[in-house]
């Protein structure tokens, strides 16, 4: 199907994964530095007291990896598997289920614009276009040439009364309109 006119959501949607360089190129096993040492190990040990199984600490452990490294590489999955007594294949199966774990490096600012129906009827697609234009990211999921921005559409952020909500890394912005985008992006550069 050719992409019809009318906005980013009308065409086939690329996820960040489609355009990613392969993980291995960035973090090879022999150079891998473990995440779960010192304070991070302590944090994990405390988390383990909350659940009757080690496996239940998997999502929290993956969050720690992403906080530390910005994404979850295959060697990191192997480390998580080792500390929780799981197999790397099992961990990868879980990582790939959830959209918030990055399986490759992303821009310094990861921009998620909600375009599900409640925001869509309020002009969310214009907000997406404005972000693509202002950041220089060529397409959804692509990182801008300066490596600073990755822009994606995200499904319902659960703030529909504040259309259009936008997440930039952990910052949650409400009621973003297309005309606010230049100043938002400007403040990040």
């Amino acid at each position: 199907m050719s992409a019809p006119a009318g906005g980013p959501s009308a065409g086939p949607r690329l996820t960040a994964l489609d355009r990613a360089p392969r993980a291995d190129a960035h973090e090879r096993d022999e150079n891998y530095q473990p995440v779960f040492v010192n304070a991070r190990r302590k944090e994990l040990d405390e988390l383990l007291t909350r659940y009757p199984t080690k496996m239940a600490a998997l999502l929290p452990a993956l969050w720690i990896v992403q906080e530390e490294r910005g994404w979850v590489s295959e060697p990191a999955m192997a480390e998580v598997a080792a500390v929780l007594g799981l197999t790397p294949a099992y961990v990868k199966g879980v990582v790939t289920f959830y959209t918030m774990y990055h399986q490759h490096p992303v821009g310094k600012y990861f921009v998620q614009v909600c375009t599900t129906s409640p925001c869509n009827v309020c002009g969310a697609e214009d907000v997406v276009r404005a972000f693509l234009k202002q950041t220089g990211a060529s397409d959804l999921g692509a990182t801008s040439p300066d490596g600073r921005f990755t822009v994606i559409e995200v499904e319902c952020l659960g703030a529909c009364g504040f259309a259009t909500p936008v997440m930039i890394n952990n910052e949650f912005l409400e009621s973003v309109s297309a005309d606010r985008v230049p100043s938002i992006v400007g403040a990040l550069k």
Binding site: L59, P60, V94, T99, M100, Y101
Partner: peptide
């Protein structure tokens, strides 16, 4: 407090339990 990781389906009660256990939702 347990933090999810981006999956609408985890609001379905049995998927939520699987996710909490460290599984695919």
């Amino acid at each position: 407090v347990h933090k999810g990781a981006g999956a609408y389906i985890c609001g379905e009660e049995t998927a939520l339990m699987n996710s909490l256990e460290g599984r695919r939702g």
